[in-house]
Simulated scan of single mutants.
Amino acid sequence: MIKLFLMAGSVFCMLSVVLGAFAAHGLKNRVSEYAIGVFKTAAEYQMVHGLALIAVAILIKWGLNLNAAGWFFIAGTLLFSGSLYLLAMTGWKWLGPITPLGGLCFIVGWLIILVQVARFKF
């Protein structure tokens, strides 16, 4: 899992930079300011949780049981950021209910980290 989480985190962070730049420069005349804001929010959360995946991999190496947190961060990024990217680009309102599921995955991932760190003997 360590290598997978490090690689996924790196890919998420890299794509966050690419997509954030695309939002700032490539979307300017194509979508509304609101849609650009939605797109930038997706990139921001993707970056944060890409870095969180890298941290999870390091903490697993230290001996913490955080595999589930890593998977929740991956699912959260795909659901939360993915639905926001699509919503911004297509305007498909039916994607709206998917976004909170991704947010819930993020919350669960952070809760798992909290519980496992509290239990861990340093």
Rank of each mutant, 00 (worst) to 15 (best):
M1V: 03
I2R: 14
I2F: 05
K3D: 13
K3Y: 11
K3R: 14
K3G: 05
L4F: 15
F5V: 00
L6F: 13
L6N: 08
L6Q: 08
M7R: 11
A8Y: 02
A8E: 03
G9L: 04
G9P: 08
G9K: 03
V11H: 01
V11Q: 02
C13E: 10
L15R: 01
V17I: 15
V18R: 10
V18H: 06
V18D: 02
G20V: 09
A21R: 11
A21T: 13
A21P: 10
A23Y: 10
L27H: 00
L27G: 08
L27N: 06
N29L: 11
N29K: 13
R30Y: 07
V31N: 12
V31D: 11
V31H: 09
S32G: 10
S32T: 15
Y34S: 12
Y34R: 12
I36V: 15
I36M: 14
G37H: 12
G37Y: 07
V38E: 12
K40A: 13
K40L: 14
A42M: 03
A42E: 10
A43Q: 02
E44C: 08
Y45D: 01
Y45L: 09
Q46R: 01
Q46T: 01
Q46G: 06
V48W: 14
G50I: 05
G50K: 02
G50A: 09
L51C: 11
A52H: 01
L53V: 00
V56N: 01
V56H: 05
A57S: 12
A57F: 03
A57L: 07
A57Q: 02
I58V: 15
L59N: 06
L59P: 02
L59S: 13
I60G: 00
I60M: 14
I60F: 07
L64D: 00
L64T: 06
N65F: 07
N65M: 01
L66Q: 07
N67V: 12
N67T: 13
G70R: 01
G70L: 02
W71N: 07
W71G: 04
F72I: 01
F72D: 10
F73H: 03
I74F: 05
I74A: 06
G76H: 03
G76S: 09
T77I: 04
T77D: 01
L78G: 08
L78D: 02
L78P: 04
F80W: 03
G82M: 07
S83K: 03
Y85P: 06
L86Y: 11
A88F: 04
A88S: 15
T90F: 00
G91T: 06
W92F: 14
K93C: 09
W94I: 15
L95M: 04
L95H: 08
G96Q: 10
G96T: 13
P97C: 06
I98P: 08
T99A: 15
L101V: 14
L101Y: 08
G102T: 09
G103N: 06
L104Q: 08
L104H: 00
C105I: 00
I107L: 15
V108D: 04
W110I: 11
L111K: 03
L111G: 15
L111R: 01
I112F: 11
I113F: 10
V115Q: 05
Q116D: 11
A118D: 06
R119M: 13
F120Y: 15
K121F: 02
F122Q: 09
F122W: 13
